[in-house]
Simulated assay, not measured.
Amino acid sequence: MERIEQRACFGGWQEVYRHHSSALDCDMTFAIYLPPQAGHGPVPVLYWLSGLTCSEQNFITKAGAQRYAAEHGIAIVCPDTSPRGDGVADADGYDLGKGAGFYVDATQAPWAAHYRMHDYVVRELPALVEANFPVTDARAISGHSMGGHGALVAALRNPGRYRSVSAFAPIVAPSQVPWGEKAFAAYLGDEREAWARYDATALVSGELRERLPLLVDQGTADEFLSQQLRPELLHVACETHGHPLTLRMQPGHDHSYYFIASFIGEHVAHHAAALHR
């Protein structure tokens, strides 16, 4: 690993590292905020997954989460949103290819060679972080938009791995909306049973070994609300199958980091309560 950024922040350190990923077969960057409490012993970790077009930089520079992480004594790890590099497949447009990994393990050419973001986020990155930083194996996960989809799926598919999960404006039913249909067809092929394994609404509707409560915030003025996000689909599935969901529709808020910054303190507190149990 190579540290490429380090900045003092709220008594702790905001750092960015580069490493070679075996899951993705390319070099990757990730950010980690270490609160002041990490100087005295291991702290739990919140993993944050960002949305389309983003990298590890958007959240650490715009959300203002470090203040709350320092207050609650938790680390925050932010991976990039896709594999990167000259040899990595890409596509025209913002919603497929680099910056749009959708947190799935691709099975179709040319994507399968590198696009294994679910494996990277759930297994490789936590193992790397826990081996090299003063953190525990107590984990939580959250994210925004495409990253909200990734966070919900990671928690639902991996019982016992996370103590809590939340999302901002997540793509809750990617199998039923244009963003997800385009990405899943490319990465996973035409078989919709494969899509269901990466669809939070479908997972809630199936057999789960753990009913981890879901916290979702959604802005009512979000420009993607009715076509791409469709939180009502998750709400119906959770009500039908008895899965605990807190869905908060936030009046006037859009899809931007102004929305995330407005409620990130509440989300960090929600995760901290679970992580410090």
Rank of each mutant, 00 (worst) to 15 (best):
Y258C: 05
L234I: 11
A63W: 02
C9L: 15
D92W: 01
Y198S: 09
P79V: 06
S145R: 04
G143W: 02
A200N: 07
Y162L: 00
S226K: 08
V177M: 12
L24V: 09
V43W: 04
T61N: 12
I141T: 02
G12S: 11
H253L: 14
T240I: 00
F263I: 00
L125K: 01
S262Q: 10
K98R: 11
R18M: 11
A140W: 03
G147M: 03
Y33G: 08
E181W: 05
T220S: 15
I4L: 13
R192P: 10
L229M: 15
P36A: 06
T201Q: 07
E223Q: 12
P44H: 01
F259D: 06
Y47L: 04
F259M: 05
D137W: 02
R161A: 14
A113D: 15
L96S: 07
S256D: 12
I76Y: 03
L245K: 00
S175C: 10
V172F: 00
L128R: 11
A269E: 15
R277Q: 12
A8F: 10
L125H: 02
P134Q: 08
A185W: 06
E239T: 08
D222H: 07
A31P: 04
G150Y: 04
L212E: 00
D199S: 09
Y68I: 00
V165M: 00
H271Y: 09
